[in-house]
Design a protein around this nucleic acid. Structure first.
Lengths: 350, 350
DNA sequence: GCTCTGCCTGGAATCGATCCCATATCGGTT
DNA sequence: AACCGATATGGGATCGATTCCAGGCAGAGC
């Protein structure tokens, strides 16, 4: 888009200008026009300038489709996330988008809503489009395997399903969970619930592992009944958490494994009159905006989704450069943002 | 992606299977193979089944690039939003993504960060990719003009820059702003500030117009010094709002024009000790999650970004179907979600 | 036995851009 | 005068899929 003035260069006819038309208008062959426009190969300086001027005049925009077909390499990255409405994935997409643009890639984004079927469908679309590479927050082990089989570089982000088979960019979940759980233990909490979405993905697994580690380090036994799997839906999770709080011996602290679950805990605690932090301490993964706006603010593990997105683009580009380099797993460390949602357990519980 | 078992059909060689290879393996010509696979044109049932079986066996995935080149029509929609990290745009993208997938379009998403230059750059990339249509939250009048000139259908969503020149899907900002301002006036407020991002886009303009209307209806003069333009950055806006609250006669109510500004007002009020709603009433556009989690909950105009996205895909698809139909502007109504952030003005202010 | 109709298939052009390779031109050298 | 290297350009094949068109073949009708 050269400028915004009216009467600006543009397609006069109904059809879009092709390089052939540009070439004819400039009185050169298609080959020369191509060299002049792309800068690949030789073209006399004056010819080059003339061709370029005419291209601008005709509003010529090269057809990426044709170029990709010929070059057998596209300038698009496929991105597949689980839920764009979730600020974590949205931030991830924003980071990827920025980095991709900087490297002159366009981004094909799809949202699989957590469904393996949709995920598979989108993966096939990506193969059809011959994307240069794919970044995915996987829901199944199949995506990466399928894409890899089709020789498309893949980076798994946030979760890992194909360790050793493709690159991954992850957050050090175990370590962050260990630290945060440790802090709760140190405050004197013993009945610390872990509310998680599921336990088999690396995210859930590692956060659970960190939680257990902290107990082990402190020499406190884990009460397995306090590890609750609550799924992905806020409302369903809220019911689950309410049930937890209604127990005769409710937990004195809750570790929510992500922002959605934290929201569920927050709302359930509010409904049940569990004052935070006096009666219930709350810590969570994902530092999203509401956590710093509510009172008390919620102590959270900040994952910096944008950085995660950027890192995965870097990794993907390196992989595209050198397809045979050894597979790598990048582990980003998370920071803990301490706020005021934790306190020692209520005295009656000691 | 047919299934996830190991030893599954897939490219054995390094190259991807092409229709030529499928045809050869099936002992038919490329033409027949194409007809068998696409269902366009005739192919004997048994031939068709055999070709399809072999295609599956070889892990054949048609090259969308080549297909689009030949058909001169792509199955991708371009989407251009201002800020993916903002839940409003993220929701919009989520809605678009879902609808697009349902209609078998893939989505090319870009984030222009509010910059007209990036916007123009992305528009050109969309033209190059020969997308079937574009949905944009415009930051300049040029995008739509440029894309239209290149015969690409455009739908402007949320904001309108090219009234009459292309379709648009908008929210009835004026009416929602009028109602909400009216409620504040009825509660007895007179010093009602409007904190807006800017005043020239339709969003800002219409919200301002609704605000003024409400004053006119109530027969109360508008104090122009209370209409504050605070830009797009939370922190900058917070400073601006702080200045507003520090005035000798601060407003008794604030109408924030979007969720970012509401956040700024919320934080500034918190810092300044302006208790909501006792000392300051707050209402806002955009109902994002934190507004129902903080106490008091914030009364907000809910725009349903997802619905907005879905409506714009519908509009775009209709436009693609009938390029010459008269231009249309769809106006969605917004709902007001009343919460507890409003109260009569403090008695000292009456 | 011949022709006609309808089913079925393959050849070849096409979409737009790229790029290898052949060739033309020119200034300068021996 | 013949030749060489460097500069500059065009012809044509190519990427993968689609689609128009011509034609082959079989069965039915006369």
């Amino acid at each position: 888009m050269s400028s915004g003035r009216a009467g600006e260069p543009g397609p006069e006819s109904d059809r879009r200008a092709t390089i052939k038309e540009v070439a004819e208008a400039a009185g050169v062959s298609r080959s020369t026009a191509s060299r002049a426009l792309t800068g690949h190969g030789y073209a006399a300086p004056q010819v080059r300038d003339r061709v370029r001027a005419i291209a601008r005049e005709l509003g010529y925009v090269p057809d990426a489709t044709a170029r990709h077909l010929r070059r057998q390499a596209s300038q698009s990255l496929g991105v597949l996330v689980s839920d764009l409405s979730n600020p974590f994935y949205a931030g991830l997409a924003a980071g990827i988008s920025q980095q991709a643009r900087r490297r002159e890639y366009t981004m094909m984004l799809a949202d699989d809503g957590g469904s393996p079927d949709v995920e598979a469908e989108v993966a096939e679309a990506f193969v059809a489009l011959r994307v240069a590479g794919v970044i995915v927050t996987p829901v199944s082990a199949q995506v990466s395997e399928y894409l890899t089989r089709h020789r498309i570089p893949v980076v798994e982000v946030d979760r890992q399903f194909s360790a050793g088979a493709c690159d991954a960019v992850l957050v050090d979940n175990a370590s962050a969970a260990r630290t945060l759980t440790g802090q709760l233990l140190q405050l004197g909490h013993r009945r610390i619930a872990l509310v998680t979405d599921e336990r088999h993905w690396t995210t859930g697994r590692d956060r659970l592992a960190g939680y257990r580690d902290a107990f082990a380090v402190a020499g406190v036994p884990v009460d397995d009944s306090l590890v609750v799997t609550a799924g992905w839906d806020v409302d369903a999770a809220r019911v689950e958490v309410a049930r937890l709080l209604d127990r005769p011996e409710p937990p004195t602290a809750v570790f929510a494994a992500n922002n959605v679950l934290a929201e569920a805990v927050w709302r359930a605690a509010d409904e049940r009159g569990f004052t935070i932090p006096d009666r219930l301490s709350l810590v969570t993964f994902d530092d999203v905006s509401w956590m710093s706006m509510v009172r008390p603010g919620v102590t959270a593990v900040s994952q910096d989704a944008v950085a995660l997105g950027e890192a995965s683009v870097s990794q993907l580009c390196e992989r595209i450069q050198s397809p045979t380099a050894p597979v790598r797993t990048v582990l980003l460390s998370a920071t803990i943002v301490p706020r005021t949602s934790t306190a020692p357990p209520p005295s009656t519980s000691r």
